[in-house]
Design a binder for these strands. Structure first.
Length: 778
DNA sequence: GAGTTTGAAACT
DNA sequence: CAGTTTCAAACTC
């Protein structure tokens, strides 16, 4: 047994034990019956398995690619037979997959029957493990090497998945995607993974239809696909010439399922990614064991799996959601990877640990996703915040158990998350979306119609951090507020989107198609660069990506943090430096963030409607305060603005009604944003009730990203009150907003914020029964 | 849409 | 830390 290769970790032992168990498992028996593969090979399998999945030299993990590596595990698996070196060089693998997120052609073409068989063996072992996991349920789950678990989920997190390549997906899905996807990405958890799984498949399906299995072309589209593609690649290639449909795989899946429905089911509920793997494995297994059948299936797939197709189609919709997530995911991944790398560097590459971390990260990143309830409850989808990490990790085991308990549970939790996340947005539709995704295998019909229920804003929310009003909306603002709001876009020309000048980068999201940037490096394919740059920037200023606007507790306006400074409950982290804008335009970050200027501001002639550093808060009703204190040079312009603001408020009664002092003031105060009726980037949160909750957003990638570091490393002085433990305010909230300071809100905010705080609507939503009512459509 | 203004970010 | 430059958003026309 070569299990030892790198496995001095406890995992190895577990694996060995597990492997031995496999032979007894029904699946194993089934396999034996079906395939020529002999148990004897288990040793070999083990070796491969270990090397592939579990062994990971610390050095390797040091790199952010770790995740990628893991994700690509399956891929490598295939390669291994032919490339013995592959296993030895993770870095190479990383480069291979993480750089482009695309599989290299040679790899693709490599598959043949023999490979399938060999890989099948490996797969079998893996699949068994997974299955075993299911069987053993929680017990095994805990024992199962984290890596495995994580890996299972990893595919969904593949950064490349979210990359630009996803554009294709988006295009395919059309608007539905944008609408639906975002919400999910931000809110949904369980479904996300599952969906991710299908994303690749979906793409395959679609592409296959149009282009007869152009795998090379397909792969680049998403890392997701890579994994799955790899799994099926061999089969697909055999059937080259004939369009490949997702449905083609259904038979395989069905077989697997048949084998052990419950197992699969559980896996599904637990971690879609796991499920994916299992499915993949099963598929491969079947294919390997019975290639002929597989071929037949593939050939006849469409006819055979009509129902399946429907399901798949339905899923496609959900899949598209994921596409939207891409940006968030990317960064999430980045953070995850980063975290992993850090962990690895610190720990002696204890795979388990790293895996755990990953899992934790994942949880954070995708709160709603796999973490079952408890966690979700703890971390309402919205906030993936740093603080949450610890708890998440701790709960990981439990979560898994909970997850195993059943899909319904997962769904419910997801729903809850969604609800919480979306409540503010008032988009229940989101829930339905997520739900649909969860039902992946279930032919759901309704699928997602988030669009209707959830206006675009939601969609963007997810991506953008849920900050429906992402900073980016700003510009393209001419568009109706709801339409493109959350979508960040930049217009960078020289910064390559690798500087804080770039809003996307600053917000911790990858640039996407709508961006008009040039020479953009802020894309998944340049993940390394992005991460490095981020690191650099963070090293210079740990809070660089932290929210710029810090919000004190709602209830603590006066007492709060800077009672004297800012009437409003929030203030800008560093203060502004305005000279000519009088802090009355969005040039002013304070103003843009909807907060008053504070002592830390160095502005001249401050007339910030939200409050001035001199303590004169103008936040009053239009005309009242401002005009009073000011010299009234603003005149008509301001009034106009105020009017607009007011209007905005009216539009968002919820927000207006918010209990937060800040909000209150705002409600009275005309919103600065004006002009286009769009709130300032970070502001949105406050304005719209949604922003509030969501602001934490599920996790701004960036927030996630820097989270650990930022919060941990940030000097006290820089640390917002919030972070410090809220000297003055029980609930300090980072105001949302982007790293620019515009988006993220502190977890506390969300968490701490009581329902009441969120506004009536939110309460209502919460009370809504979880999933069924929302999702099920007749 | 082009050009200007502005202030943050980056650089020195 | 201050001054300068660079940059892209915000704004104006």
């Amino acid at each position: 047994m070569n299990m030892n290769i790198n496995m001095d970790t406890p995992e190895r032992n577990q694996i060995n034990t597990t492997l031995s168990k496999f032979e007894d498992s029904p699946v194993f028996n089934y396999i034996n019956n079906l395939s020529p593969i002999k148990p004897v090979k288990s040793a070999h399998i083990t070796q491969t398995f270990n090397s592939l999945s579990f062994s990971s030299p610390p050095s390797v993990f040091a790199s952010p690619h770790v995740t990628s590596l893991k994700e690509s595990r399956f891929l490598r698996r295939h390669n291994q037979p032919e490339e013995s070196k592959a296993k030895d060089s993770y870095e190479d693998v990383n480069k291979l997959y993480s750089n482009d997120g695309a599989i290299e052609e040679p790899t693709l073409s490599r598959h043949n029957s023999r490979e399938l068989d060999e890989s099948a063996e490996q797969l079998i072992s893996v699949g068994d493990v997974s299955i075993e996991l299911s069987n053993e349920e929680t017990k095994f789950t805990d024992e199962l090497p984290q890596s495995l678990q994580y890996n299972c989920g990893s595919p969904g997190y593949d950064p490349t998945l979210c990359g630009d390549e996803d554009n294709t997906l988006l295009e395919l899905s059309g608007e539905a995607v944008s609408d639906d996807a975002y919400p999910q990405g931000g809110c949904v958890t369980d479904s996300v993974e599952a969906e991710l799984h299908f994303q690749g498949t979906s793409q395959i399906d679609r592409k296959g239809e149009s282009s007869d299995c152009d795998w090379d072309g397909l792969i680049p589209n998403s890392a997701n696909m890579l994994i799955e593609a790899e799994a099926f690649k061999g089969m697909m290639q055999k059937s080259s010439g004939s369009p490949i449909r997702l449905s083609d795989f259904v038979p395989l899946l069905q077989q697997c399922t048949r084998n052990d429905d419950q197992k699969i089911y559980m896996v599904d509920s637990v971690a879609s990614s796991s499920q994916h793997e299992i499915e993949n494995h099963c598929s491969e297994l079947v294919a390997a064991t019975d290639t002929d059948h597989t071929q037949d299936n593939l050939a006849n797939g469409s006819s055979m799996t009509g129902n399946s197709n429907e399901k798949m189609d339905n899923e496609l919709v959900s899949v598209t959601h994921r596409g939207i997530r891409r940006r968030c995911l990317d960064f999430e991944m980045a953070s995850v990877r980063r975290k992993i790398a850090d962990d690895n560097s610190n720990t002696n590459s204890s795979t388990q640990q790293s895996e755990t971390m990953n899992a934790a990260n994942e949880n954070q990143l995708l709160p709603a996703k796999r973490n079952a309830n408890s966690q979700r409850c703890i971390l309402p989808g919205i906030g993936l915040h740093l603080n949450a990490l610890a708890s998440v990790k701790d709960h990981k085991g439990k979560e898994i158990e909970n997850l195993t308990s059943g899909r319904q549970l997962s769904l419910t939790s997801s729903t809850s998350l969604l609800l919480s996340a979306c409540q503010e947005h008032q988009h229940l539709s989101v829930v339905s979306v997520s739900i649909s995704s969860e039902r992946e295998l279930v032919p759901s019909d309704n699928g997602v119609q988030p669009t209707e229920d959830c206006p675009q804003p939601i969609a963007y929310m997810a991506t953008e951090d849920f900050n429906q009003n992402s900073p980016k909306k700003k510009r393209r603002k001419s568009e109706p507020v709801g339409e493109i709001e959350g979508c960040k876009r930049c217009n960078c020309k020289k910064s390559k989107c690798l500087k804080l000048y770039c809003e996307c980068f600053a917000a911790g999201v990858y640039c996407i198609e709508p961006c008009s940037c040039q020479e953009c490096f802020n894309k998944p394919i340049h993940e390394d660069t992005v991460l490095q740059t981020r690191k650099q920037i963070e090293s210079r200023n740990p809070l660089a990506f932290a929210p710029k606007v810090i919000r004190s507790a709602d209830s603590v306006p006066e007492t709060g943090i800077d009672p004297n400074k800012t009437p409003a409950s929030a203030r800008h982290k560093r203060g502004c430096n305005c000279k000519k804008s009088n802090c009355l335009k969005k040039y002013c970050e304070c103003y843009q963030g909807g907060v008053g200027c504070s002592i830390s501001c160095r502005c001249e002639g401050c007339k910030n409607a939200f409050g001035r550093k001199d303590g004169s808060a103008s936040i009053g009703i239009e005309g009242e305060t401002e005009e009073e204190t000011e010299t009234s040079d603003k005149g008509a312009e301001e009034k106009a603005i105020q009017k607009t603001e007011i209007q905005n408020i009216e539009d968002h009664p919820d927000s207006a009604g918010v209990s937060t002092p800040l909000r209150l003031s705002r409600s009275l105060l005309p919103m600065p944003f004006s002009s286009k009726g769009k709130p300032p980037r970070s502001f949105v949160t406050t304005l719209t009730g949604s922003g509030y909750l969501t602001s934490q957003k599920l996790a701004k990638p960036n927030s996630l990203w820097s989270q650990s570091k930022t919060f941990q490393t940030v000097p006290d002085d820089e640390m917002p009150e919030i972070l410090r433990g809220g000297d003055s305010s029980p609930i300090a909230c980072i105001k949302t907003s982007s790293p620019n300071g515009k988006r993220i809100s502190s977890p506390n905010c969300e968490m701490g914020s009581s329902p009441s705080r969120r506004g009536g609507r939110k309460l209502i939503l919460q009370s809504i029964p979880s999933f069924p009512s929302l999702t099920h459509h007749p």
